[in-house]
């Protein structure tokens, strides 16, 4: 049993659910515990990560990249060691911005085995 816990949040006031749902299901099927919190503001993401003591944070980005960047920055302050990966609407300039913050980015078209592989790697499962 992995027992690894992943938080899945949406940073935008945006309801596209296909991406986060398919990713959450793939992670569950790979043995992860995925905590869904829905649309959350940066500070809400941070508090949920703390309370849930997760091993990895997943952000689905549906809106402006700077909102996600604020969430990541706030997280880094609270729990600098916590890995973050994300997907959704992430055009190349946004991808570069997030990668510079150490966030792994899985844009549209990413295959689920790659995402699951990243989750395993980022949670230290190899």
């Amino acid at each position: 049993m992995s027992g690894k816990r992943i938080l899945m949040a949406k940073t935008g006031l945006d309801g596209h659910w296909r991406g986060p749902t398919i990713v959450a299901r793939a992670l569950r099927d790979a043995g992860f515990e995925v905590i869904m919190i829905g649309m959350a503001r940066p500070e809400e993401v941070v508090q949920a990560c703390v309370d849930e003591d997760v091993d990895l944070v997943g952000l689905n980005i549906g809106g402006h990249i700077d909102v996600a960047v604020r969430a990541v920055t706030a997280l880094r302050e609270e729990r600098p060691e916590l890995p973050v990966f994300c997907g959704g609407v992430v055009p190349p300039h946004a991808k570069r911005k997030l990668e510079a913050l150490g966030v792994e980015v899985y844009p549209p078209g990413s295959q689920l085995p790659d995402i699951v592989g990243a989750a395993r790697r980022l949670t230290g499962l190899g």
């Binding site: 940073t11 935008g12 006031l13 945006d14 503001r41 940066p42 500070e43 809106g63 402006h64 990249i65 700077d66 909102v67």
Partner: peptide
């Protein structure tokens, strides 16, 4: 953010995502 939710821009949910 505003239209679909029927919020004005000064609604806290919108302010929290102002860049969007």
């Amino acid at each position: 953010n505003t239209g679909d939710h029927c919020y004005n821009v000064d609604h806290p949910e919108v302010v929290a995502r102002r860049e969007d």
